[in-house]
Amino acid sequence: MAGDTLITDELRKTIGVAKQSTTIEMEKGMLRQFVDAIGDPNPLWSDEEHAKKSQYGGITFPPGILAASLMGGSGPWLDIPLQRILDGGSEWEFFEPIRPGDVITVVGTIGDLRERQGSVGKMLFIISDIEWKNQKGEVVATGRATLIRY
């Protein structure tokens, strides 16, 4: 059907409006499980004595932690009748280290919606702007994530 678009007026209204906020306690167990899962033996993430002598003055989370789903970096969930999901990619800018014991609040906002005809049918590209802040109100990182629904 010509003229058919996934991006209805109603959906378009979510741009800049639909938000999702989550608070995450950055526990030591989470850090241990993360570095164990990716297989990263860097002592910066596990050895307090070693990490004390580094620029961070103590153990920190690897920056890649922002890739974990539980860090809320995929943006708000849109209720649309497309069942399949693909991760289209992400970009981040890092400002402050994340330490065990930090409480991070992440806010994701729908930044843009795009549509493309793929080999598997219509695909909706949902682009979200993400901001992570710590308990001191410092912006730890910002990011942009693309989620593909089809």
Partner: peptide, 23 residues
């Protein structure tokens, strides 16, 4: 992505920083 960041943090050592990343 987490693997790629590991490659970077291995390379830049304790005093280097990852400032931006896109993938």
């Amino acid at each position: 992505i987490a693997f790629l960041v590991q490659m970077l943090t291995d390379w830049i050592g304790d005093e280097g920083k990852v400032k931006k990343l896109a993938c």
